[in-house]
Design a protein around this nucleic acid. Structure first.
Lengths: 204, 204, 204, 204
DNA sequence: CATGAATGAGAATTCATTCAT
DNA sequence: CATGAATGAATTCTCATTCAT
């Protein structure tokens, strides 16, 4: 506990704090202005650091957002990582349904940040690449679940798990962006029900 | 003499030609440099017109791309507009499969232009909005097909046609961007087969 | 018809004027602040043009200075281009002496600008290259004179005209920079006398 | 000799080593990147020292280069300091010729470093001043030689030794920079021969 | 002796767009 | 219908140097 800090010199602790200040300030500025309009100037001003300091810790604006993005996505990973060991089609549907709900809810909770991220994905090569990595991680996890269900004789074994996982995630991701955008044309529950049912009916 | 009419006609013809030159030059420049790096300068230079001329025909760079985009999407609309009146689940699967194939093939054919469009969607509000409109048009058309199948007793009537159509299109669209990106991890045929089967098995 | 031409000419005339304004302003700013400290901002401000305008006419600060430099060097070229057709060693010494005098006088006259140029040569690759070109032009001209004297039997024919011309110009150039620098340790007349005598005694 | 080090405390020895590391690293970095692109960062990294350490030993980047420059110039001084006591014009020409050869050869040997120095002279006031000092030292030495020859009745006594020495060194210096630049348009031997002959024929 | 976190000045530059001709 | 000279906003990112530890 206290040991952790004892291992660090005063200098190191200050450095960590400075980085954190920058991250916090960056997040606030991004949320206020969006990705493109946000400037490093604003951030260092709010973090009470010097101009060069930001560049000690982050290569540039994109880089800072990526760190923030990973932080947010951490929560999503936890949802994706949930154990999935259904014993029947019914159980599968229930669990998948629940996972989709958590996924969308999380997105809605982090709505503001997700919108910044979406903007950044379109604008910054680097951020887009990072998002693709994140996506692949989700798809990979879903593939495992599909394979599990196939092995257990619950899911149609003729499907290619990777392609199914990919298609399934794509639909979810796009609905997620819809939810985040805010002009909610549909109830989230309707989306979940229809989406899951179609998937489960098709796959299982 | 019919001089006046002929003069007007000549003028009109010149105008049409100028517009076409601009469009052709614009397309070439977009394909060479991508959306952001492309400049109006380059375009008017290649079209052998003056700076201001481009603005006679197009509101701005985004506007020019949108015209180009609509031109390309016209072909896609034709695929979407194909009659869909299956008499059995088998026929449905066959027809949907074929439609997906045409959709993806078209995208691959127009690969270069689709990549420019993708870039522009991320960067330009206007283009993004236009793309959303295009997307809605596709989804609308699919909804009609779903409803038809439900009415005919082929498709599960408990599904919300709009949500199903949307989810289905989202998956297709994302795979389309994958195909267009070029690092083809999967065979298009595998994608089509798995995607269609899952959809048809789930819906019908 | 004539009107159209006049309109075009008006435009062109304005453009030429704008360019001239920029050049004049640029020169003034360079003289006031030196090469490195001078900024395009200051120049456009003094020329009463917009920021972008400067970049319509000049690629960058270096480019603008090069134009100014060529303007100044034009006067030097005229000295170098003077006819040189001595009939005796005495005449040669007299003419060379006179040329060196004009060369150094000119440099002293344009002292301020020459100092800017010297600074720029050290700092900007482009300017340095341009200066090398200018130098070669002088050396080339001197070579011609040396060859003339050799042909006339006045100068020692065993010397390589190009190398002699180069060495001779180098010494002159360096003394020129000394004169321009201002801490005149020597009288210009002494420099001319000694330099020319050594050269003429050696070569003729 | 080894005593010198034995007299030093561990601390002092470490300090000397650190300084040497910095100097070596600095030289390597300068040679790799040129003067302007070289950064202190790179140097301290390669020398395995901390940021501040470099500033314990050197006032700044220019200062470090000056130390390196003096080291290189030391060899040149030795050439300049060679005894010069010719008994005839022939001997003078021979000795001067040899000195020029050594001078140019040395420059070519240290080509890489000389190029860095040239860049630095143009960019840094401090380095330029130091170079001027070095130059004066050479000129001073040559003046002594000229005076010696005049006293011995070998050289024309009407010449101002200081001005002759200066002109002579200027020509040599400039040819030296040419040799160092690398696009060798002339054979070094031709340069030496022509240059020396002109000088000796003129002066003696 | 050694360190390294923090600093901050500041000039260049682009290109879509306008509007007078 | 066509032109093209003029505009100008606004952020980036570097790196030598300092000084508290």
């Amino acid at each position: 506990m206290a040991n952790e800090n004892e291992n660090l010199t005063v200098r190191e602790r200050q450095a960590i704090q400075t980085r954190k200040n920058l991250l916090d300030a960056g997040k606030a500025i991004f949320l206020e202005n969006g990705f493109q309009k946000a400037t490093i100037s604003q951030m260092i001003k709010r973090a009470h650091t010097g101009y060069g300091t930001a560049y000690v810790y982050f290569k540039n604006k994109d880089d800072l957002l990526i760190v923030l993005m990973e932080e947010v996505m951490e929560k999503f990973y936890q949802v994706a990582e949930q154990s999935f060991e259904p014993k029947s089609k019914g159980e599968a549907q229930e669990q998948i349904s629940e996972q989709v709900r958590l996924f969308l809810m999380l997105a809605v909770e982090e709505k503001a940040m997700m919108n910044v991220i979406k903007e950044a994905i379109g604008v910054s090569q680097e951020v887009e690449q990072r998002w693709n990595l994140i996506r692949e991680r989700f798809i990979e996890r879903i593939s495992v679940d599909v394979r599990y269900s196939q092995k257990k004789g619950l899911a149609n074994p003729t499907f290619n798990p990777v392609l199914v996982a990919r298609g399934w995630f794509y639909a979810n991701e796009m609905f997620m962006w819809d939810c985040v955008k805010g002009d909610n044309l549909f109830s989230i529950d309707d989306v979940i029900m229809n989406l899951t049912q179609l998937y489960v009916d098709g796959l299982y």
